[in-house]
Amino acid sequence: MEKISEKEVERIEKLAGLSFSEADKKAFIPQLNSILTYIDKLNQLDTSDIQPTNHAVSINNVFRKDLLTDSLDRKLSLKNSPDQDSQYFRVPRIIE
């Protein structure tokens, strides 16, 4: 059964902030479907009583002292941005 349809791809596209050409979509849909079909293997296992693992080596509550330290210089922080205005990152229009 097809898990990912064109409509589903458009939903994910929006969620992921991506955009595909028609040719990309044509290639991706069967590839994603074959991966998801393979992944279905996991349903052979009953995991109802199993705790999920998020980190394989568990550490809890890593604290540090609340100390004042130097932060990255502003000029240096802005240096890599595609567009900036003195002390800000500049972006295209947000409000229509």
Binding site: I4, V9, R11, I12, E13, A16
Partner: peptide, 15 residues
Amino acid sequence: AEVKRRIMLGTYALS
């Protein structure tokens, strides 16, 4: 393409 494929797959699995 591969990066897009994985972002798609991951976004789908978390949606």
